[in-house]
Design a protein around this nucleic acid. Structure first.
Lengths: 195, 195, 195, 195
DNA sequence: AATGAATGAGTTTTCATTCAT
DNA sequence: GATGAATGAAAACTCATTCAT
């Protein structure tokens, strides 16, 4: 029962299905058929819209990247001080929507993909740079450039590390706890005088 | 020309080949044939030795895990103070052999694997717990139990995060720099009085 | 924006597109989608007009056949002697419109098609017989029936052979040269006394 | 029941099966599965040995080309005069093994293939040049260079044309008749004084 | 012990064709 | 009349795995 104007809806449905499929089956075992089935369409349609498995996966990654960017921006828009901006970046990264198991699985899978696929690597580098740049920006008002860079790198690594550990955790730190942990580490680091 | 006593050598060669293959082709694209070719044996032999692809991959993971454990133990054996023990755990985790791109790729791939494969998950949890336990042990002599736990979690996350970021870096933090970064964060955290 | 009276134009455009598509992609790789795209319509429409891929291809063949017939008839209409009629048949077969690479490719493809498809075979036999009959007719006034038949067969084969070779040629005989070659061969054959 | 040393046998069987399959189904409809089934092996094995459909088809073409070359060489080896050499080239091209319907179909299909596939084109050009060169060589002892070239081109075209017509014929010229027809045309052409 | 031979099961991919609008 | 949407069916291709030697 084809209706017109379905394309964007199907694309979105396929991307959402891809995230879940990656979580459930593992990147190595996702098939177009599986993804399409979850999205309620035929594998042929998924091909038609995305051109192939790899491109569907990259589109999924771009979607995740954009969503994360939006989430951080939304938090930043509400911030009124350097402290609040730091907090906003951190909380954006740990927002409910990002910290879901399926999404974490997908991010991890893309990190793996990026080891071999140049386009995935390029996309992931954008995320990496943006995170560091956001942190650096907020820290610049609080300390020296040299220390700001060190702290930003530490904070970015910590965020990634908490994500990756979360993927294994039965319970582990919830989003709230993770954000607090990062903020505390930043504050501790900023107290250091000699840096 | 089969010779006696070849089995352990073949197994080792296959595991090393698996690590490289995962790095070069990506976990999703490694094949028994590819691994066997790199190891200079037939796919049938790889199968014969390990019983199947999944088991070869798990054996590779166990190998990595054991190697990391040995490396940390070797560092710890040389340590004579709490501070040195902390440093030993960190440096063990960033040792030259562990911080090679191919090895990082493989670890990442196993994190992904662990999302769906219970045995991989079990093995990875062993690593996680061992790391935290090692850190906790060293920190117990320097601070309160509550703070030691918080700092250990932070340090463990930081180590994982630096690994994952390293996998994308063109240059990124070298092993030395990564270790320093973690030690500094631990020291900063320990200075905090209220915790 | 559908307008009335478009059907014949669409049909023609699709047939022309089919010829080009066969040339560019090869008969084995032509798709309805490709042909329709070249003709600027949807695949569904192509289907609607012709009833299916096979029928579009057969229509294309009929078009080529008709065009060749017309061209030979046009030349014949101007001929006033047996010699001129022979020349007319040959020149009709090598007329500019027929000797284009895309058209040659299409003819070749239909020869292949005819090996398995009875309708294509039937159509191609019509061409074959018409060519031989045209030649025979012109030759009957110049020699014995037996020799006329032999020469006609030789000439027809030569025409087909020059076509097929032309399809591979970087330069090869142009239409003019090809026609001269055939005429000369016919004249040489007619000089033979004993036949 | 795998035995060693099967590879060459399988390759040959697959090539023979490919020729028959092309004849029966038409190049556009041959499938690896069909060819493999005729050869009595799995489609996977055909892939394993040839790497893909295109390459199996090219291998088939190379086989046909080599066979034709051998056949002409065998005839040439027995020839002791220019006249006999000409006859040898012609008879080699129409030898029983070459003039079988399935083989003719395959050749035709490769002509079509050559319109789009550079490798097929290259291979076919080799055949084309070899035929012309063989004819030219034999003719050089009988007439001027200029006339030898013209006659060689005519003869080569005639050979190709007789093949292509044969592919449609219910009866048509048998190998013997085709060879005679070409020889006669050559002799007629050589009688011409002014060339 | 080791391997070439062989395949079945499964995946991606392609495409003619159908249908609601 | 014309098309975007959608798919079933079939094809190429991949690969872990088995087996005779």
């Amino acid at each position: 029962m084809p209706r017109i104007g379905m394309e964007p809806l199907r694309r979105k449905a396929l991307i959402v299905a891809a995230i879940d499929a990656i979580h459930d089956r593992g990147m190595g075992h996702v098939t177009m058929g599986e993804i399409a089935r979850r999205a309620g369409v035929s594998a042929a349609l998924a091909h038609h819209y995305f051109g192939g498995k790899d491109q569907l996966l990259l589109a999924t990654m771009r979607h995740l990247l954009a969503e994360l960017g939006d989430e951080v921006q939304a938090e930043l828009a509400k911030a009124n001080s350097p402290q609040e901006r730091i907090s906003a970046v951190i909380r954006g990264n740990f927002s409910a929507c990002q910290f879901r198991p399926a999404v974490i699985s997908a991010w991890l899978a893309f990190y793996v993909q990026a080891q071999t696929d140049p386009e995935a690597r390029r996309l992931l580098r954008i995320y990496t740079r943006r995170l560091e740049s956001n942190l650096l920006h907020a820290l610049r008002d609080l300390t020296s450039r040299a220390q700001a860079e060190r702290v930003a790198e530490m904070a970015a690594s910590l965020i990634d590390g908490l994500w990756i550990r979360r993927s294994l955790a039965e319970s582990g730190p919830d989003a709230e706890g993770a954000a607090d942990l990062v903020e505390r580490a930043i504050n501790d680091a900023l107290k250091r005088k000699d840096a």
